[in-house]
Design a protein around this nucleic acid. Structure first.
Length: 564
RNA sequence: GCGCCUGUAGCUCAGUCGGAUAGAGCGUUGGUCUCCGAAGCCAAAGGUCACGGGUUCAACUCCCGUCGGGCGCACCA
């Protein structure tokens, strides 16, 4: 990408400057130049800050910048220095090379191999099969699926996994709840005990149970039914798992007991108060944890340790889990377990997502399965998959989202996602118009289309847009075209950063900036005109825009409409 | 009490690695369609970056402390 290109250039120039003793007391080039895009574009398109060399060179930053810049041969760009910055401005040759590369690589323009094929297990959502998803699950689903898309695009080998918590007490409660619903449907009067699942969704489940002939036990039927509903919603929400991993299967395959035995063998367990404890405080945990309760049953942690062991045994070198912030205290004990089993716990990366508050009628509602709540299903039905995903993704993972249902419903046309999609539809419309017949408004006669479909596909393959930056173009038009091309190029840096930092929200932000750059370009440059050569070059840029924006939206799982 | 997250424009949020004049959307005000989609574009107003120290040539950014908000501190899952 261009940032790296200029950073390398500066690095090389520093080598030469040191050789020629132009950098004072600086002897060795340990400097890692970082290229950034200046906030103020008057300085340049790209800038490298060399001021931090001042303390080693014992020279003033502006002189350092000048002395380094002298060793850079400006080909396709111009250089200026100011206040410790070396600034670069791209000229038409380099701008054209960007467009050529996009036309050549298309949606893979920003693809990379920074992941080097690393085998990553990404676990997210992992809900109990006891009821419908709440809005918070939507955030984890959107985050996980998008992160998987981004990382796969950047050369990681991501395997997406959903851990089904189908082995705890909650399953007994679910079974009992279904049983009561079935009895109710048959006209029996029942008394609901505390702590059950009184949600109405179990009424439908009970109907299906009766229809099925009541052959299965309540627990198995309810679990399967809930899981089926969850899977359907996930598909609709464009979240695709490679594997649904059952907690129960760990017990059936004796993996839990084997795991406990292994920890015991390594001397990491002890008995106290009739329970079996894991010495997690030998590691970074604040206290020891119970694995086997005094009644002989295992805790949730026990199976989860076996699960993580299972993942590592399957050859994953990196385990990424997306958890809600309310689980943060759980991280040290999990890491302790991984270390105790002889693995390196630094392979476990837990992304803690802050929670989602639901705001309705101006009041905050608690998330929770047992209280009245808004389900993800309802939300998606009301505001759509695109808007829901975008809203869930657009904020950094560290920020609590206040999801205002009323706002999302009533002002959906003010959603940023519509702004972005509109830009895409607008660009597609121009590409469509290019091959449609035109109407001469003055004498109402029909004019032939500007381009044939063959010509348009030629434009999409090969063009030279350098003339867009000739003297006869207006300043605003040139600047807008340049800004758009640079913004397109930025997709490389943004997508790589999103993969490395596990930060999907960067793509939402970028998609908005890219849309703005396009609208700006559109405003200053009439694309289709009688000047056929000019139209061709501008169409090429419009096409590049649809490719890059389309791919960006594809990665975040939001549709890129041709028409709206 | 301890731990994690957080405090930036009226509201919701960006701010990468410590660098140039602090950024966007929404909202407000004023412009802008005979012409490719005005769901757009342009402009204006709006800031003691919670507060106090420290490190540095340079701090919204790093360190320490104080205050406010969220979440968690189980033989629940």
């Amino acid at each position: 990408m261009k940032k790296d290109f200029f950073a390398q250039l500066v690095h090389g120039a520093i080598d030469k400057a040191i050789e020629e003793k132009q950098l004072g007391e600086l002897q060795e080039n340990n400097f890692n130049p970082i290229c950034e895009i200046p906030k103020n574009t008057q300085f340049g398109d790209y800038a490298v800050n060399v001021a931090s060399l001042a303390r080693f060179a014992k020279m003033a930053p502006p002189i350092i910048a000048q002395n380094i810049a002298r060793y850079i041969n400006p080909k396709g760009f111009s250089i200026n220095t100011a206040a410790g910055f070396i600034n670069f401005k791209l000229e038409k040759e380099l701008l054209n090379s960007i467009v050529e590369e996009i036309l050549d690589k298309k949606e893979f323009f920003a693809s990379s191999n920074i992941g080097h094929g690393e085998k990553v297990n990404l676990e997210y959502v992992s809900a109990n099969p006891t009821g419908p998803f709440h809005i918070g699950h939507g955030r984890w689903a959107a985050l996980g699926s998008t992160l998987a898309n981004i990382m796969n695009f950047c050369g990681y080998d991501v395997y997406q996994e959903f851990y089904i918590n189908d082995a705890g007490n909650q399953i007994n409660k679910l079974a009992r709840s279904l049983e009561l619903r079935v009895k109710e449907l048959k006209g029996e009067k029942v008394i609901w005990e505390d702590d059950l699942y009184p949600g109405e969704y179990l009424i439908d489940c009970a109907k299906r149970y009766i229809e099925s002939g009541e052959k299965e036990n309540y627990a198995d039927f309810a679990k399967a039914d809930m899981l089926r509903l969850q899977k359907e919603l996930l598909e609709k929400f464009r979240t695709h798992f490679d594997c649904f991993f059952s907690e129960l299967s760990l017990y059936k395959n004796n993996e839990v007991e084997k795991c406990v035995a292994e920890l015991d063998k390594k001397g990491k367990l002890y008995q106290k108060d009739g329970a079996i404890w894991f010495k997690s405080s030998d590691y970074t945990d604040s206290q020891d944890r119970v694995l086997k309760k005094s009644d002989g049953t295992n805790t949730y942690l026990t199976a989860d340790i076996a699960y993580h062991k299972n993942k590592l045994e399957r050859g994953f070198t990196r385990l990424i889990n997306i958890w809600g912030a309310d689980h943060h205290g759980y991280i040290p004990r999990m890491k302790a377990a991984i270390d105790a089993l002889g693995y390196d716990s630094s392979c476990l990366e837990v992304l803690l997502g802050q929670l989602v508050n639901i705001i309705q009628n101006g009041e905050q509602m608690r998330m929770g399965k047992r209280k009245k709540m808004v389900t993800l299903d309802e939300l998606v039905d009301e505001v759509g998959v695109d808007a829901t995903r975008f809203w869930m993704l657009m904020r950094s993972i560290d920020t609590t989202i206040d999801f205002d249902i009323d706002l999302a419903k009533s002002q959906s046309d003010k959603n940023p996602v519509f702004y972005v999609q509109y830009a895409h539809a607008r660009a597609c419309s121009i590409l469509r118009k290019a091959t449609e017949k035109r109407i001469d408004t003055e004498n109402k006669s029909e004019l032939p289309a500007l381009f044939s479909t063959e010509e348009l596909s030629e434009i999409k393959k090969d063009t030279n847009i350098e003339s867009l930056f000739d003297e006869n173009q207006s300043h605003d038009s040139k600047e807008a075209a340049k800004a758009l091309i640079l913004k397109l190029e930025e997709s490389k840096a943004i997508i790589n950063a999103a993969a490395k930092l596990r930060a999907p929200y960067l793509l939402c932000k970028y998609s908005q900036e890219l849309a703005t750059a396009f609208h700006h370009f559109y405003n200053y440059s009439r694309v289709l005109s009688d000047d056929k050569e000019l139209s061709k070059k501008r169409l090429a840029i419009v096409y590049c825009f649809t490719v890059i924006l389309g791919k960006t939206l594809d990665l975040i799982g939001v549709s890129a409409p041709q028409k709206m």
